[in-house]
Amino acid sequence: MKYYDLHIEIENDAEKVIEYAKMLGFSGIAVTANPPAHRDEIEIVPCILIKAENKEDMKNEIEKYRNKTELVMVYGGNYEINRAACEDGRVDVLCSPERGRKDSGLDHICVRSASENNVAIEINFNEVLNSKNRSQSLSFLRRNIYLCNKYNAKIITTSGAKSIWEMRSPRELASLTNLLGLDIKSAIDSVSSVPEGIINTNREKIYGKRIGNTKIVGDVV
């Protein structure tokens, strides 16, 4: 099984990041800041993390990068942005919607449209590891997972590491998601098959093998 960590925020030390990711058992990583060049030993997913202040900025940024990168992620936290990201089909991942808030940052309207538009909601391990009030952030994550379960929205689990020592192995990330209310199979899928599916469909779209939900097989005459 292939495991992916789609959110690593380490700026330097690309060599060490790759070494540790391999040691922890990942077969693909996405480094948001300063992504390293292509390697043979590990798959590096080109990605962009959009940090916007309002809706219009976000839409402009998405327009700019959508056809160039394989993964478009939006930095959540602001309710306006959370909702706009969920309603935009071009976004792949909404990163930690509960960041810096006193509530979970998502409601049933957001999650329903996220499920319709195939936007995945991220469970960020770093938010738990470095939070000041761990019990509170755990309960927000629990609520988001409950809503995603209810409306069949995609969930992915990432480490969100800012240094090498915050990286964790895929099975540990999955066990956190499992404890917060997702069954064990979907929890393991959230670090393996769900991210893999997102990346594969986006690759097909970029290289002209897919239009919308239709896959093109063979040559087009």
Partner: peptide, 11 residues
């Protein structure tokens, strides 16, 4: 699973 997660939370 509980022990696994608490081991992961050691920094």
């Amino acid at each position: 699973e509980h022990v696994r997660t608490s081991l992961a939370l050691i920094k």
